[in-house]
Computed example of a mutant assay.
Amino acid sequence: MKIKIPILIILIFPVLFSCQIEKKNSEYPANIGDIEFNPDTDNKDYNLCFRKYIFQYFNYTSETENYKGEKIEIDKIFFMQYKNQNIPNETGLVRIRFIVNCKGETDRFRMIEMDEHYKPKNFDSKITSQLMGISKGLKGWKSKKINEHDVDYYQYLIFKIENGNLIEIMP
């Protein structure tokens, strides 16, 4: 059976033009929740070991075992350094998320603030600047290996605030 050339072209034409061209600079991160470099706030000299993949918190067992002294030490540092503010209605949660590289160094800190009903809120800077400053000052983050490879990973801390006072640190 002989297929005529015009019919062959009609059959091949959709296949040729159905291929998608890869977009080099996507407007979306490779993974949901990735923290992209921001030259206005992030350290340009901060190096990641494996740029293409940063492990999420759920890729390992315990979030606080990644810190020397674990959660007890984190609590101790914050409750010693944070100065309670006693500001009425400054109640809710502040989450600070960041990256720990394979050397245990941190950067790319991002903050999300919400009220006690999980709605967006802007806390007084007397609160947030302290929480961010203390978080950036934590120097006990451990490097991590997964399958014998050095990895970078995301870490987060959530602070429960009531009337400007630090009540609890999670996780």
Rank of each mutant, 00 (worst) to 15 (best):
L166R: 01
P88N: 07
R108H: 13
I72C: 04
T41R: 09
K126W: 00
I167R: 09
Q56T: 12
F58E: 13
E70T: 07
N38S: 12
K126V: 00
T106F: 06
E148S: 15
D115T: 02
I146F: 14
K23D: 13
N86V: 03
I54S: 12
D75E: 13
L11Q: 00
N163K: 09
N43K: 10
I158D: 14
I10T: 15
Y82N: 10
F13P: 05
L138A: 03
N163R: 01
F17I: 10
T61L: 15
H117A: 09
I161A: 04
L16W: 11
N38G: 07
Y53A: 03
P171R: 06
S135R: 02
N66H: 08
Y60T: 05
I9K: 14
K160E: 15
M80L: 08
C102R: 03
L166I: 02
Q56E: 14
Y46S: 04
W141R: 05
F13N: 05
I161G: 07
I99C: 03
Q85T: 09
I127A: 10
S135I: 00
L16D: 05
K4W: 05
F58N: 15
K83T: 10
I99M: 05
M170Y: 08
D40K: 11
S18F: 10
Q85A: 15
E116N: 15
K121H: 11
K4A: 13
L166D: 02
K136Q: 14
F79E: 12
E168H: 12
D115L: 04
D34P: 04
I54M: 10
Y118A: 09
S143I: 00
T106N: 08
L93T: 02
N147F: 13
W141N: 09
V94A: 14
E105Y: 03
L16A: 10
I158M: 09
I158L: 07
S129L: 03
D34V: 01
N165K: 03
I9T: 13
L157C: 02
K52C: 00
E105K: 12
E116K: 12
Y46W: 14
K121M: 13
H117C: 00
D42K: 05
N101L: 03
C102Q: 03
C49H: 07
D150L: 12
N89F: 15
I35F: 08
I10W: 14
I77S: 02
K136C: 05
F159H: 06
G140L: 00
F159Q: 04
Y57P: 06
R95K: 14
K142L: 12
R97V: 07
Y67R: 09
S26W: 05
N163G: 00
K4T: 08
Y67N: 09
Y118S: 12
I72Y: 14
H149C: 05
T91F: 06
F55E: 10
N101Y: 01
F55H: 11
E168V: 00
I158V: 12
I96W: 11
D45E: 08
L48D: 02
K142T: 00
G92M: 03
K44Y: 01
I169W: 08
I5E: 15
Y82V: 05
F50L: 07
D115F: 07
E105A: 08
